[in-house]
């Protein structure tokens, strides 16, 4: 029931944003919000235990900061007279649960400094790193801890 209210409010908010606050189309908006809600429950049933909002906020902050750092790092590498790259492949064992946590990890790692997910197989994630001299594995583990807190019951 709680999940229905949260998702419903989310879709209603989305409609309010898309309609730019105009009140005259709320009839259609309600239909869209209910349809979106039904579809979201079919595609993504609520998880047992749900997700932690404090964990989600912490993840968002971590992600914003590190993805900005990652972008800046690649930008400076690209603009150097001689790009100083030392790429390598790296196997990372994951302790995250299968499903959404591992998928989020694989997606997010591509936007972190110097790492890109290449292949997720079971509990092992193969990474391509731009510079093997940097502590990519340690940073990936920090991200993993952050994601684990999002999905903690």
């Amino acid at each position: 029931m709680r999940a229905v209210l949260i998702r419903g409010a989310g879709f209603a908010f989305l409609w309010w944003v898309l309609a730019e606050g105009r009140p005259d189309a709320w009839g259609l908006g309600l239909v869209a919000a209910v349809a979106g809600c039904v579809l979201s429950f079919r595609l993504l049933p609520p998880r047992h235990g749900g997700i932690s909002f404090a964990g989600l906020l912490a993840f968002a902050a971590f992600f914003l900061w590190h993805s900005a750092k990652g972008g800046l790092q690649v930008a400076t590498l690209a603009l150097r007279p001689r790009p100083d790259l030392a790429p390598a492949l790296l196997e990372l064992p994951l302790s995250l649960a299968p499903g959404a946590p591992r998928v989020l990890m694989t997606a997010a790692i591509g936007l972190m400094p110097g790492t890109l997910g290449v292949c997720l197989e079971g509990d092992r994630l193969r990474l391509h790193v731009l510079d093997e001299r940097l502590p990519a594995a340690a940073e990936a583990q920090a991200l993993e801890k952050c994601i684990a807190r999002v999905f903690a019951p």
Binding site: G70, G71, A75, L77, A78, H128, L130
Partner: peptide
């Protein structure tokens, strides 16, 4: 610039995904 200068598909993906999003 990174997309044009980096040596292979993997390093170019780094440039494209990270910098363009920023």
């Amino acid at each position: 610039v990174g997309l044009l200068r980096f040596p292979d598909v993997y390093t170019r993906l780094h440039a494209l995904a990270k910098v363009d999003n920023l």
